[in-house]
Amino acid sequence: MPALSHALPDPAGVQPAVPSAPVPVAPRMTDARLPLLREIEVMDEYGVRRTIAIPAEQALTVFVDRRELVTLMTLGAMPELLVLGWLRNQRLIASPDEIESITVDWEVGAAAVRTRAGIADLDARTGRRVVTTGCGQGTVFGDLMAQVDGIRLPAPEQARLRQGALVAMLETMRQTDSIHRRAGSVHGCALFSADGRERLMFVEDVGRHNAIDTISGWMALHGIDGGDKVFYTTGRLTSEMVMKSAHMGVPIIVSRNGVTQMGHDLAARLGMTLFGRAANRHFLCYTGFDRFDSEPEPQRAPVRVVAG
Score class of each variant (00 low, 15 high):
184 G>R: 10
184 G>C: 13
184 G>M: 12
184 G>Q: 06
185 S>W: 04
185 S>A: 14
185 S>H: 14
185 S>M: 14
186 V>P: 11
187 H>M: 04
188 G>M: 04
188 G>W: 01
188 G>Y: 00
189 C>P: 06
190 A>Y: 00
190 A>W: 01
190 A>I: 08
191 L>S: 00
191 L>F: 03
191 L>I: 00
192 F>S: 05
192 F>L: 08
192 F>I: 01
193 S>C: 09
193 S>K: 15
193 S>P: 01
193 S>Q: 09
194 A>R: 15
195 D>E: 11
196 G>F: 06
197 R>A: 14
198 E>G: 11
199 R>P: 06
199 R>T: 10
200 L>C: 11
200 L>P: 06
202 F>E: 08
202 F>G: 04
202 F>A: 04
202 F>C: 04
203 V>S: 14
204 E>Y: 01
204 E>Q: 13
204 E>P: 12
204 E>G: 10
204 E>C: 11
204 E>W: 10
204 E>L: 10
205 D>L: 10
206 V>R: 07
207 G>M: 02
207 G>D: 01
207 G>I: 03
207 G>V: 03
207 G>W: 00
208 R>C: 05
208 R>S: 07
209 H>I: 03
209 H>S: 11
209 H>D: 13
209 H>G: 05
210 N>Y: 01
210 N>P: 05
210 N>R: 05
211 A>M: 06
211 A>S: 14
212 I>D: 12
212 I>P: 11
212 I>K: 03
213 D>I: 01
213 D>W: 02
214 T>L: 02
216 S>H: 05
216 S>F: 11
216 S>W: 07
216 S>P: 13
217 G>T: 04
217 G>P: 10
217 G>N: 10
217 G>H: 08
218 W>V: 00
218 W>C: 07
219 M>D: 05
219 M>Y: 07
219 M>V: 10
220 A>R: 00
220 A>W: 13
221 L>W: 03
221 L>E: 11
221 L>H: 07
221 L>C: 06
222 H>L: 05
222 H>D: 04
223 G>C: 11
223 G>Y: 12
224 I>M: 13
224 I>L: 14
224 I>V: 15
225 D>Q: 05
225 D>R: 04
226 G>P: 06
226 G>M: 03
226 G>N: 04
227 G>Y: 09
227 G>C: 09
227 G>L: 11
227 G>F: 13
228 D>C: 13
228 D>P: 02
228 D>K: 14
229 K>E: 02
229 K>W: 03
229 K>P: 08
229 K>L: 11
230 V>I: 15
230 V>D: 01
231 F>V: 12
231 F>Q: 09
231 F>H: 14
231 F>L: 15
231 F>Y: 15
231 F>D: 06
231 F>S: 05
232 Y>I: 09
232 Y>N: 07
232 Y>H: 13
233 T>P: 02
233 T>D: 01
233 T>K: 01
233 T>G: 08
233 T>W: 07
235 G>R: 10
235 G>C: 11
235 G>A: 15
236 R>W: 06
236 R>F: 05
